[in-house]
Design a protein around this nucleic acid. Structure first.
Lengths: 203, 203
DNA sequence: ACCTGAACACCGTTCAAGT
DNA sequence: ACCTGAACACCGTTCAAGT
């Protein structure tokens, strides 16, 4: 007697189509950039018909939002790794900034999807939550600096927003090609920027 | 439903179709955002067939590059206006930062086109030149601050890049909805950010 | 439950043809 | 010289139908 379950799996089930779609989207974005994404091409790469994705995502944007959410989780992890070896709160502050810009430049397509205007954050709670987690890590860094008197007292949230804006600006301008530098020189500029900011935040 | 089409003056001449296309593109982007642009909709609004634009622009991207170039010129003008009434180099520095973010938030679609990944700067020399002009204004501000000993000596270009990154980051995160603030509170955050940075840049 | 093919209303771009 | 209509190869999304 033939195993209908396996046959049916091959005929109808993809194993984990949701995961396959997220992976194919990330791969496509990596190859062609944030604007090179199309739902139909993703379906082709996943080996399913062009409307099969709708079983797992409400729309093309929902799929992108899924990739963006996982991007924020990956970014958070990268920042945690970068600060793990830091000797002082100031060192952690500088290192996390450099790691942030490096993450963006290593995955420019994904980064642009994360902050692209295409995604209205409202309506994608998972994405919103993941972005908040990443930001909270930065707030913690600022608070740690304040506790050890490296930074002056005051609204940690506002200071974290300023610090975030600085590295996001560096990353986004670099991706746009406006800074005309990459690699080592960009890392140096980021470390310099972060040091200047730390000095401005001193008590 | 409003009819956006413009009545043609006669069968062949539009007067200045190039200008009409740039205007229609800006209007469309203002209404629907940077991603809402399509060449065919622009042609419809200009009252010409969907391929008439190719007489004036090599591609859809070339039209967007034209709008972006004019955007950089408008941004430069806004920054000049903002610093005109400044009392000190430090005041000028803070004012230009606030004006920068206000420009971006007043024209989010246009701003995103100016820095969007869709435009490779190479191949659009007019755009490249206009962007450079805007940046040069900022370098001048930094140098003026150094001459009057408000800022420490050192690479003015790098310092301008850091200052630019800060306001670009604030503007872009605000447009993305990540800062969750707008208007007066965003202006205050920008002024605060710029003041913190100025302190960091002090001698 | 999950996936498909056909269909609809769009795109950007090209090209021969019209004035 | 400037513009048009038709055509091509794409899109995202919807829907009835198949297993």
């Amino acid at each position: 007697m033939p195993d209908h379950r396996v046959r049916r799996r091959n005929a109808y089930h993809h194993g984990d189509l949701r995961r396959a779609l997220l992976d194919a989207t990330l791969q496509l974005i990596t190859e062609r950039g944030a604007t090179g994404f199309t739902l139909r091409e993703v379906a082709r790469r996943a080996g399913v018909s062009h409307n099969a994705p709708y079983r797992h995502f409400r729309s093309s944007d929902a799929l992108l939002a899924g990739v963006a959410a996982e991007g924020f989780t990956a970014l958070s992890a990268a920042l945690v790794r970068a600060t793990a070896g830091a000797t002082t709160p100031l060192d952690a502050f500088v290192r996390s900034g450099v790691a942030y810009v490096e993450f963006a430049l290593a995955h420019p397509g994904r980064y642009r999807v994360m902050f692209g205007s295409r995604l209205k954050k409202t309506g994608h709670p998972t994405l919103e939550w993941a972005a908040e987690q990443a930001f909270n890590g930065l707030v913690t860094l600022i608070k740690r600096g304040q506790e050890t008197h490296v930074f002056a007292e005051g609204d940690a949230h506002a200071r974290a927003q300023v610090a975030w804006s600085l590295v996001h600006g560096l990353a986004d301008l670099a991706i746009a090609g406006q800074l005309a530098i990459r690699g080592r020189r960009l890392r140096e500029l980021t470390a310099f920027a972060r040091t200047v900011l730390a000095k401005g935040l001193r008590g």
